[in-house]
């Protein structure tokens, strides 16, 4: 009897050992696979710091043989990249502020005072999500054109805001629904009216929600290419359009292009790692709840 328990114990510990070993093995394999998966991006970063002749070498290597900031210098020399970045930033920033402001107000109204309208609205938002960007872009181009706003910041701000508002309402409603109504009531007892209780009590409590919504609205605008390509030409040209112009039929500036692509996306990547918590909560909100 004793020996029996001993062997089962041995078996158990052996099994546990294999499992433990297994886990480490899986860990190592997954880490290698993850690094392989991310390697295209690492390769672009490494290429951007190669000398430009090496960046377009006929026998490319993963790691640079020599380091240089040549590509970054020629990126600045070849186009007013800073003003393109500025255009991207200002349109993304203003449209984010507008969408979050409009979206938070509307979401609060829907979440607190009329759940029926709120449900209808969720359906509309879902439908809007199905509408391809290009379908909105066609009439938007005609409207912006007839308003005489082609190639202005306003054109992009209006467009980004209109796409982001339904999304902002949808996200913010999720957050407001999680805040107990007692918060509003307590604020009212303390002498707030509906608007001041919204501003002073509800908004501060829903800061994580506002952060998540802002990140998504900002990223949509910052990453947009289609609308910027369609609605701008010189004055309001954004970074995405600028970067894409390193590659034309007559001009294949691959070295400076990698420098511009890294300058454009690396800050975003670092930022998104820092705020990953919010991004994850925003992305899993709709899809996992159902």
């Amino acid at each position: 009897m004793e020996s029996l328990t001993n062997t089962t114990q041995d078996k158990k510990s052996l099994f546990q050992w294999i499992r433990k070993y297994n886990k480490q093995f899986i860990g190592i394999i997954t880490t290698i696979l993850a690094l392989l998966f991310i390697s295209p991006y690492i390769y672009i970063i490494l290429t951007s710091i190669k000398p430009s002749s090496e960046a377009i070498s006929n026998s490319p290597t993963f790691f640079p043989r020599e380091l240089s900031i040549e590509n970054y210098i020629s990126m600045f020399n070849q186009m007013p990249i800073l003003s393109y970045f500025f255009n991207s930033f200002i349109t993304a920033f203003v449209s984010t502020v507008l969408s979050v402001f409009l979206g938070a107000l509307a979401a609060y109204g829907l979440a607190r005072f009329s759940s029926k309208l709120g449900n209808v609205f969720l359906l509309i938002t879902l439908c809007i999500r199905m509408v391809p960007m290009i379908s909105i872009a066609i009439p938007m181009y005609i409207i912006i054109n007839s308003m005489g706003l082609i190639d202005t910041h306003a054109a992009l701000i209006i467009t980004y805001t209109s796409i982001n508002v339904p999304f902002a309402i949808w996200l913010m409603m999720g957050f407001f629904n999680n805040i107990p109504k007692e918060f509003d009531e307590a604020a009212r007892i303390d002498g707030c009216n509906i608007f001041t209780s919204f501003l002073k009590v509800i908004l501060p409590v829903s800061l994580p929600g506002l952060a998540t919504t802002s990140i998504f609205c900002f990223m949509l605008a910052w990453n947009d290419f289609l609308f910027a390509l369609l609605l701008t030409s010189t004055n309001a040209k954004t970074a995405t359009v600028g970067i894409s112009e390193f590659l034309t039929a007559y001009n294949l500036d691959l070295g400076p292009m990698t420098a511009a692509a890294v300058s454009f996306s690396l800050p975003v990547m670092i930022f998104s790692i820092l705020v990953q918590r919010y991004i994850v909560s925003g992305m899993t909100l709709g899809s996992v709840k159902g």
């Binding site: 860990g27 997954t30 993850a34 390769y43 910052w222 990453n223 692509a261 996306s265 998104s272 790692i273």
Partner: peptide, 25 residues
């Protein structure tokens, strides 16, 4: 596994990259 949070962060880092940049890469 040990360190899965770190690997997850690595894998999630392209999440917010612009489609345009992926095209360029």
């Amino acid at each position: 596994f040990k360190g899965h949070g770190f690997v997850r962060t690595i894998l999630l880092s392209p999440l917010m990259i612009a489609p345009l940049v992926s095209g360029l890469i």
